[in-house]
Write a protein that binds this DNA or RNA. Structure first.
Lengths: 120, 120
DNA sequence: CATCGATATGGTCGGTCGAACATATCGGAG
DNA sequence: CTCCGATATGTTCGACCGACCATATCGATG
């Protein structure tokens, strides 16, 4: 009855002016790792290929080094996969999400209690 | 040479669909508490009065109960101040910021190290 | 060399958002 | 009753963003 633990906060990690990662980008990276394709990952998240591709561009350029490697044509008719750095960024982001939710759980619960007596 | 501790992540606390608070809103609440005025707080943050007022509206309506109380005319020619709930939300948000930054510091440092060998 | 699937890009369109400008209103003070 | 400072609101304009549509390109495979 309460999915409170799922989305109590949006965490955006800012490593530099251009290099940052938030929930959407992390999900996209995860989708690419799972599907091996930008378009498939984007479709699964309900976004256009162009948007997914733009996010990948932003990530690669923002971090100064690619998090996603792409291939056109070829054996499997192209595809995309995470680089080592991409995997690390994703894994650490997920770890930080967990650490954060743990750290703020008590305060979030207290705030929810403080505002939960509204009629409408 | 490193202000890494200042802005390593943007934290947005989502208490419900409409009730949430992020860095900008927290700063505005803090400014209102400090100045006793929406316009003064907004001006100090470099935003128009209207924007500041809109944010206050969004906060009050989103939380279902006012975080900021306003007064027009009157002795001090009007003004605004935080309600008890407003003070609590602000205080807890700041606490959560600190807790979060502590919890993620190690991962952030590792990521910074991982990407810090770019020429341009 | 034609094919096929996925990447790579461009352009347009509509909605949203913040900025700027313009008022209206309140209510004690003088 | 006018004045003043701050709240309260509406309007308009330009920028930005995501959605959608269209197309170009790659490159192993058969």
């Amino acid at each position: 009855m309460d999915k409170t633990a799922s989305g109590l906060g949006h965490l955006r990690i800012v490593l530099s002016d251009k290099a940052y990662i938030g929930p959407g980008r992390a999900d996209l990276l995860e989708g690419i790792a799972a599907t091996g394709s930008i378009s498939a990952a984007g479709k699964a998240m309900g976004m256009s290929y162009k948007r997914a591709w733009s996010l990948v561009q932003a990530l690669n350029e923002g971090f100064g080094r690619p998090l996603v490697e792409t291939a056109r044509g070829g054996a499997g008719q192209g595809g995309a996969q995470l680089t080592g750095l991409g995997h690390e960024v994703l894994a650490r982001y997920r770890a930080m999400q967990v650490a954060t939710e743990t750290a703020i759980a008590a305060d979030v619960a207290a705030l929810r209690a403080a505002i939960s007596d509204i009629s409408e």
